[in-house]
Design a protein around this nucleic acid. Structure first.
Lengths: 227, 227
DNA sequence: ACCTGAACACCGTTCAAGT
DNA sequence: ACCTGAACACCGTTCAAGT
């Protein structure tokens, strides 16, 4: 690849002469948002930015370091809930706000889950969530349990086990397949049949399911608080 | 790599002349169990088995196909609970049995979560879980909700967000670090202080936390059943 | 201080050739 | 039918060399 200067029209994304960690980070997040996480490579990122891939190593220790920073940046985008409501409302608002943020970055859940240690924004987020519960009257021990029960849901996501969006270009073939599966998996067949009446299995409303689960858990925690 | 025959002493794992999907699968699971999932490559697997890496493609469509098979094989190892108890006990036993199985394959959670579609054993497992709830008196709609609330926990795992096992070779340095973190994250500091009295943060008992969360969810579902 | 390019040690996979 | 090896198109990263 030939040398390119800051004013070279072939490198539209090279805005200033020198790279920075911030610019690298936001370019990486943009690329992941648009093309998916599997398209994040040091080489492609370098190309995107108009720098030699090896230049990136001046601003980031290695790819893991970059992924750490990406994950933490996304958590840092979450808008904290205004803290004057009761703990349950605050927690609910916080988690749903996290969910809104994460939906803008579909790659983030798997990257967040694969991190070995939380970054500062993530620490701050958990500190905030812990504070909400403590101020709401939870014992330290119960807060600890609560964080484990909520798991990744506290950051607004659940890693869906598999796309139950059974893509059906051909409804007739799908029905045939469904019949044959029904014999092997009668209980799942019943589930699918009912769900599809309500607008398609997989058309199962993720937002609604998330809310349902969150409320069940928060209600359970509230009950334990008075247990 | 030189040609090796079935009797070549340099290829100890080559037991019979020809490869099979089963042998490939169990070799892959063994390798992942011992060396971790990141050490699973078509090339290493071929070497391990004493075959040219390209031979694997006669038994497996590609690496994703292999990972699909690995995930489904692990779910197939789960021993189903004997079904005569009440739904809550059956569900609890099933999930805890799943957990025991998954603990033998630490790589499995992330592989299972990254699958796009469930294999037959996984379908069977979910069909069984669905059956337990239906026979326990849950409506189809509530079963659907229940599966979403349980999420990956139904398969016996939760993807821990990060190792809260703060490795501390030097307790003095750790204490110093803790002090400085306490200023920035007071609520987490309180949590850590308390947990470490009970035998170390991260020394937080995962089994106990899993049980706690599972019971909270099952209790919540039971309550909704009568709601 | 930051950027560059060659080089190294890996990947997954296709394809033509062997047996 | 199954196995092989060369080849292709990728990776992340080190290191010496440039400016």
């Amino acid at each position: 690849m030939p040398r390119r200067t800051a004013t070279d029209p072939r490198s539209p994304t090279r805005g200033t002469a020198s790279l920075s960690r911030e610019r690298l980070l936001s370019a990486a997040i943009d690329l992941a948002d648009h093309d998916g996480i599997e398209s994040i490579s040091m080489r492609k990122l370098g190309q995107q930015l108009g720098f030699d891939p090896m230049s990136l190593y001046n601003h980031v220790r290695n790819k893991e370091d970059l992924l750490d920073a990406m994950a933490d940046a996304v958590v840092g985008e979450i808008e904290p809930s205004l803290g004057d409501a009761d703990w349950k409302m605050s927690m609910r608002d916080t988690v749903l706000s996290a969910r809104q943020t994460l939906l803008r970055h579909p790659w983030a859940p798997s990257v967040i889950e694969s991190r070995r240690a939380p970054g500062p924004a993530t620490m701050r987020y958990f500190d905030g969530a812990t504070g909400i519960l403590r101020r709401g009257g939870f014992s330290v021990a119960l807060v600890h349990h609560a964080l484990h029960v909520l798991g990744s849901r506290i950051l607004g996501f659940t890693q869906d086990l598999f796309d139950d969006a059974t893509d059906r270009p051909d409804p007739e073939a799908a029905a045939k397949l469904a019949d044959s599966l029904a014999a092997a998996y009668p209980n799942l067949a019943e589930l699918a049949r009912t769900a599809s009446h309500e607008g398609g299995l997989g058309g199962c409303d993720d937002d609604l399911e998330f809310d349902f689960a969150l409320d069940l858990i928060l209600d359970g925690l509230e009950r334990l608080k008075y247990g």
